[in-house]
Structures are given as C-alpha cells and as structure tokens.
C-alpha cells in the first residue's frame, strides 16, 4: 500500500481548465471551416530536428499515413529506417524487425499526452488542442498560421510553443522546446481517400 512511487513516474494528464481564458483572439470556427479533416490521409514528410546543445541539425524523411481516431504510422526511411505506430492506447517503435520501444499510454502519461497532441495536430482537431493550448494566429486568403502556447507550466517543460501553418491541410509544423531544441516538419504529396 504505497502511493508515493506515484510521484515517481513522470505523468501529466491534463483536462480542460474551465478557468482558462475563453478563446477570443482567434476564431476556431473559421479554422474548422477552412481545414479538411479527412478520415484518412497519407503523404511524405521531411523533418529537421535541431539540437541546440550541439548546434546540429538531424534531417530525416519518410512517409506517413493516418486513419482518423485509430492510428498514425510514421515511417522514417532516411537516414535510418524506423516505423512508429501511434494509437490512442500505445506507441510502438519498430526498427527492421525488432521492436525498440513499446509504451502503453496508461503506463506513461507523458507519452500519451504528447501523442495525443501530435494526433490532434496532424488531424487538425482544434477543439482537442484547445484543451492543452491557448491558440492565436491569423487567417489570410485560405492560408492560416496558428501558434499554440501550453496552458499549464508542466506541459511547457516538454513543448514550449507549437507553430502550425497550412491551407486545407496542415503543411508545416514546428515544435519548439524550452532549451532551444526544435522539430520542424514539412508535409508534401498529401493524398486522401
């Protein structure tokens, strides 16, 4: 009967804060009308990861697909081959034929929150994102730019800011961290059934 170990894993789970500021700066409804949220989508990505401590860029590219509310497959093809499968329940990372990582969302809430965010970003689920972030940005002639700032200090330890850019689809995203690291992803060849 020990509960203190609870404090040991690194879990954050956030639920909507009613005390948070109502969404006034930015019109989610307009954004919703603008962006398509298809049942499934696939395409190519190129990713730049910047590590501030080393002043180093790690470039990778590959293909991805998702099925709404079910799974995201993130298949890195270069420079390494790696396939990440995210479902609302788990994250699995497979390299060649070996599974290098498998996490149940309930055993590692930090991962579950981040994959929830990733999921919502990819599928443009703005209402879901509002749970975690304060949204601001602009819409201009079918193009939009949105900046997400975490509502809770604990979540900003993982992501301090997210920048999104797109039209009917999300075209570009940037996760920015406190220490100056960032992950920059550009999507192309988007197709949906």
């Amino acid at each position: 009967m020990k509960y203190l170990w609870l404090l040991v894993f690194v879990p954050f789970l956030y639920s909507a804060q009613s005390s948070a500021q109502p969404f006034t700066q930015f019109d989610v409804v307009a954004l919703n009308q603008l962006t398509l949220s298809p049942g499934s989508l696939s395409g190519q990505f190129s990713q730049q990861k910047y590590l501030a401590d080393f002043d180093m860029q790690l470039a990778s590219s590959g293909e991805f697909d998702y099925t709404k509310n079910q799974s995201v497959n993130w298949h890195t093809l270069a420079p390494i081959e790696n396939k990440i499968t995210m479902t609302p329940q788990s994250i699995t990372s497979v390299q060649g034929n070996t599974q290098v990582m498998h996490l149940q969302a309930d055993s590692n809430p930090v991962v579950s929150v981040l994959s929830d965010i990733f999921f919502s970003v990819l599928t443009s689920q703005w209402q879901q994102l509002e749970v975690y972030f304060t949204l601001s940005g602009q819409i201009d002639d079918g193009q939009w730019q949105v900046v997400l700032i975490p509502k809770d200090s604990a979540i900003s330890q993982a992501v301090s800011k997210i920048e999104l850019q797109g039209d009917a689809y999300l075209r570009h995203l940037k996760f920015i961290e406190n220490n100056g690291d960032y992950t920059d992803i550009t999507f192309k060849d988007l197709r949906h059934e």
């Binding site: 990778s60 790696n82 990372s93 990582m101 930090v110 981040l114 992501v159």
Partner: peptide
C-alpha cells in the same frame, strides 16, 4: 537513433 529521429520529443 529511433528516439533522436522520432517526431515526439518525449524521452
């Protein structure tokens, strides 16, 4: 390598 190239910044 898998972690470094992962789009998720956890871990």
């Amino acid at each position: 390598l898998a972690k470094l190239y992962s789009p998720l910044s956890a871990d």
